[in-house]
């Protein structure tokens, strides 16, 4: 499964766990803060991805980076995975 599919699947699981209702048709331009997941939900998403993929791109970065859109979020993970390989 590619990283975008993994993130999408995890996003759905975490949204349910966090009692959040996601907007329909999340695409790369969807602004994360308007996706329906709250900030605690995003913390859970990062935590679940860290457990599953053994990476935490946000801690690995030298500078604080906060992706604005779903596309940027996926890109951060894609880049981190490519650096690991």
């Amino acid at each position: 499964m590619d990283i975008e599919s993994i993130i999408r699947k995890t996003l759905l699981e975490v949204a349910e766990m966090a009692d959040c209702t996601l907007v329909d048709n999340i695409d790369e331009h969807t602004v994360l803060l308007q996706s329906g997941l709250d900030s605690l939900g995003f913390a859970m998403l990062v935590a679940q991805l860290e457990e599953d993929l053994a990476i935490d791109p946000f801690s690995e970065m030298e500078m604080a980076v906060y992706p604005r859109t779903f596309g940027e979020f996926v890109a951060v993970y894609r880049q981190s995975l490519s650096q690991r390989d």
């Binding site: 913390a43 935590a47 457990e51």
Partner: peptide, 9 residues
């Protein structure tokens, strides 16, 4: 360590 606690709710 909060992260796994969040996942455990």
């Amino acid at each position: 360590l909060l992260r796994p606690m969040l996942l455990n709710r």
